[in-house]
């Protein structure tokens, strides 16, 4: 049995509760993340994938539900010290390499922010040594420490963001669309770096993205979200070979691949939520169709999926 690092149980995140424009950004989502794995979370903009990540790391207070980190509730009341400890163990890499680094701070101070907050260096010298080491870890060098973020390219900035997250030696990193703002040639650099770090440091990732081909490559398992709900969760190769939920199927059929022949013959499926035709009172929930392959479906659909699997 693999060790569960993160357990998300019935997580709900509603905005503007009670007002006419209430948004159910995350609506009753449950999943686990095992130690050392990469869980991919995909879906289109507004499906709640980023909100899920941000709620897990407490940037938002959950409306309802639990997030357990090593069996401990993340959202419960906590002492300042416990909270700080938690902040060290869980880190985030952000989407926009231009907005995620403070433009007025030097690279050394950006990377060392976690070191300063948690008092991880005893002297100025030790602090700089750590910064240099982190820069080298992400493939940059010490002479970059005294520069400002705007002097770096997008890929370099994203690596600085990774170095900042690594500075506090986390166990779990939420990567919120870390490559979608980068050029193709640079995306691979960042993905390779993340994988190499995972191997070296035993990191666990939640990788949020809309680029499905990269997600498939980096993830062990993938969850697909649609309008605040998790609709399918499966090991990544299974998800690509046997997508069960019609939304997953439409999403997969829409990815353009770098192969002109494939593109000429591509058949695109569209998803219409009306196909489910759920009856009133029918219980729709995540059901395990095959070991590790969960689909959001009704009992009737469940039987169909099982029959044809």
């Amino acid at each position: 049995m693999k060790e569960k690092l993160i357990e998300v149980k019935g997580l709900k995140q509603y905005f503007n509760i009670g007002s006419p424009n209430e948004v159910r950004a995350v609506d009753d989502v449950s999943f686990d993340i095992y130690k050392g794995e990469t869980l991919g979370l995909v879906g289109e903009s507004g499906c709640g994938k980023s909100t899920t990540g941000r709620t897990i790391i407490r940037l938002y207070d959950a409306t309802d539900g639990e997030v357990l980190f090593k069996g401990e509730d993340v959202h419960g009341k906590k002492s300042k010290k416990a909270l700080k400890e938690f902040n060290r163990k869980m880190q985030m890499i952000f989407q926009d390499p231009y907005a995620s680094l403070n433009p007025r701070m030097k690279v050394a101070d950006i990377i060392a922010e976690g070191i300063d907050i948690h008092g991880l260096a005893k002297s100025k010298k030790e602090r700089m040594e750590k910064v240099y080491k982190l820069l080298e870890t992400v493939g940059l060098n010490r002479e970059h420490a005294n520069r400002y973020p705007h002097e770096f390219s997008g890929g370099q900035r994203q690596r600085l963001g990774i170095a900042r997250a690594l500075a506090v030696e986390p166990d779990f990193i939420i990567a919120d669309e870390p490559i979608s703002a980068l050029d193709v040639s640079i995306q691979a650099q960042v993905v390779n770096l993340m994988q190499q770090l995972q191997k070296e440091k035993g990191l666990t990732y939640l990788f949020i993205a809309h680029d499905l081909s990269m997600v498939k490559y980096i993830s062990d398992r993938i969850g697909v979200m649609y309008f605040g709900k998790l609709v399918e969760l499966a090991p990544s190769s299974v998800l690509y070979q046997k997508p069960l939920h019609p939304y997953t199927q439409s999403l997969l059929s829409a990815i353009p691949l770098p192969d002109p022949d494939y593109e000429r013959n591509r058949v695109r499926k569209t998803y219409d939520p009306a196909v489910h035709n759920y009856a009133a009172g029918e219980e729709v929930k995540m059901r395990e169709v095959a070991p590790g392959h969960w689909v959001y479906c009704s009992e009737k659909e469940f039987q169909q999926h099982k029959a044809t699997y």
Binding site: V184, S185, I186, Q195, L212, P258
Partner: peptide, 25 residues
Amino acid sequence: WGLMASMPSLETVDEGQLEAIPGTP
């Protein structure tokens, strides 16, 4: 070549690293 090789393909179940183009423009 570098551009093509740095993209993972959907069909292949590949282990190992992507062929990233090193450095920056």
